[in-house]
């Protein structure tokens, strides 16, 4: 457990917040795809810590960004924290994304709040041709487009209602790209149906795909075994755990129901 000072809180949309932590420890250790398990104060209404993915790391000024959506009493308390206060943080936890080698090409596919961990991934691969395909419900829900465009060579947005960018799903943007491009890896994070489609597309074409999974967590370190997700095991499946064996998995290993 570490006490990390909050230096900035920003509201990025109605219900999305960015918390900026001053921490040389985290900037040195955090890898893209990892998460922090943060205590939301001492309320018994939000008893457990909340796992929040690392969104960006700024080595220059020693800060780390985490971005989260208000989804319940825990994230509500996190959203009320103020600059100057300290956050009680476990982590960085979990297995990170594996980067593409310099000179290669990568496509990240993010949906909604699943876009957040992909930003730092793009930043850590400066010598890779980087494409960001981001999907949101509507134009009002789009966050961090500027940040993504600054670290991606190419960025496209899809909205379900067509209010910005492509009218439709982000998976359609990927499908179109894969007709003419063959990236060295596709990285995906977002709703389960989206991750399933992207994973199937990539496996069908023999393109490596890394998925960042989400599940309700308990301890965050692999002891309690609650954050189970299905993993291929011969012709059958077994349960692996998102916090310790994930959250990033090889897409070929995961069984999407």
């Amino acid at each position: 457990m570490h006490r990390e000072r909050i230096v900035r809180m920003e509201r990025l949309s109605d219900d999305i917040f960015r918390m900026v932590l001053q921490s040389g420890r985290l900037t040195e250790s955090a890898k893209p795809g990892q998460f922090l398990n943060i205590r939301c104060g001492h309320s018994l209404q939000a008893y457990l810590r909340r796992p929040i993915s690392i969104c960006d790391v700024h080595a220059g000024d020693g800060t780390v960004d985490i971005v989260f959506q208000i989804r319940g009493p825990g994230t509500e308390l996190l959203g009320e924290m103020k600059p100057g206060e300290e956050a009680d943080v476990m982590g960085p936890l979990g297995n990170p994304f594996k980067p593409v080698n310099p000179g290669g090409s990568a496509i990240v596919v993010g949906g909604g709040i699943g876009t957040f961990p992909l930003l730092y991934l793009l930043r850590t691969m400066p010598e890779v041709k980087r494409t960001a395909l981001l999907g949101f419900r509507t134009a009002g829900a789009v966050v961090m487009a500027k940040e993504f465009s600054s670290v991606a060579d190419c960025m496209e947005i899809a909205t379900d209602d067509g209010s910005l960018g492509h009218h439709g799903f982000v998976t359609e943007l990927l499908e179109k790209r894969l007709r003419t491009e063959r990236p060295d890896c596709v990285y995906v994070c977002g709703p389960m149906p989206m991750m399933r489609i992207v994973t199937e597309q990539c496996i069908g074409m023999g393109i490596p795909v890394q998925v960042s999974m989400e599940q309700r967590m308990g301890c965050g370190v692999g002891a309690c075994l609650v954050c189970a997700c299905k993993k291929r095991d011969g012709d059958d499946f077994s349960y692996t755990h998102v916090c310790r064996e994930g959250p990033v998995f090889d897409g070929r290993d995961i069984v999407f129901d």
């Binding site: 018994l44 008893y47 308990g218």
Partner: peptide, 23 residues
Amino acid sequence: RRGNRPPRIAETPGGILNSVGLQ
């Protein structure tokens, strides 16, 4: 043992419900 299907945890006031199923 493989354990039960997820979700295996629910947060409730001052506690948690779990259904790991002896994985």
